[in-house]
Amino acid sequence: MAEARKLTDDAAIEAAASRYYRYFPESANYHKAHDFDFWVLEPVRHRYIGGFGAIHWLDQVTLANPFAGQAEQSMIEHMNDDHANAIDHYAKLSGLPRSAHMVGIDSEGMHLRIGQGIYWLPFPTTCNTPTQVREALVSLARADVWPGSSQGEG
């Protein structure tokens, strides 16, 4: 369950639009033509339904993105501008096609856009600072297999 709140602050609208257009660049023209709004869903409670008799309320399951806004934008621009080969390496290691562009980073992983598809790749460990993200990205760029995959394990 969540409460929906319309963004009204110009800076918040610009940040939301910038992030949304990274994921869905073709939507920028629709926004201008149809004047739609950006909304934020603020979680109130979470409900897990795992089948009959396995229904529970969950607490503290939503993570805020510690890099939202300019920090995330800077990391993504740096990776796309200076480390496209590393991004292609991440795609290759995870079995995805190459020619990927990074569109999002959060504490748990990264989102890559390949063609019309968006793919999420997890970091080996949670990253709570930009330095930890950098260390994870460098480690993945040097990896021979994606961490946790069964490739190369006998």
Rank of each mutant, 00 (worst) to 15 (best):
K6M: 08
L7T: 12
L7W: 06
L7M: 13
D9Q: 13
D9P: 11
D10S: 14
A11K: 13
A12T: 04
A12N: 09
I13G: 03
A15M: 02
A16T: 10
A16L: 03
A17N: 05
S18E: 04
S18K: 03
R19V: 04
Y20L: 10
Y21K: 02
Y21N: 01
R22S: 00
R22Q: 07
Y23S: 02
Y23M: 00
Y23L: 02
F24G: 01
F24H: 05
P25I: 02
P25N: 09
S27L: 08
S27W: 07
Y30E: 00
K32T: 14
A33N: 15
A33I: 02
H34A: 07
D35K: 12
D35C: 08
F38E: 09
F38A: 03
V40R: 14
L41Y: 09
L41E: 12
E42H: 14
E42A: 08
P43V: 02
P43G: 03
V44G: 12
V44M: 12
R45H: 11
H46W: 04
R47G: 06
R47P: 01
Y48Q: 08
Y48V: 06
I49R: 12
I49S: 13
I49Q: 13
G50C: 12
G50I: 06
G51Y: 07
G51H: 09
F52D: 05
G53Q: 09
G53T: 12
G53V: 03
A54D: 15
I55G: 06
W57Q: 07
W57V: 11
D59F: 10
D59P: 02
D59G: 13
Q60Y: 08
Q60G: 12
T62F: 12
T62G: 06
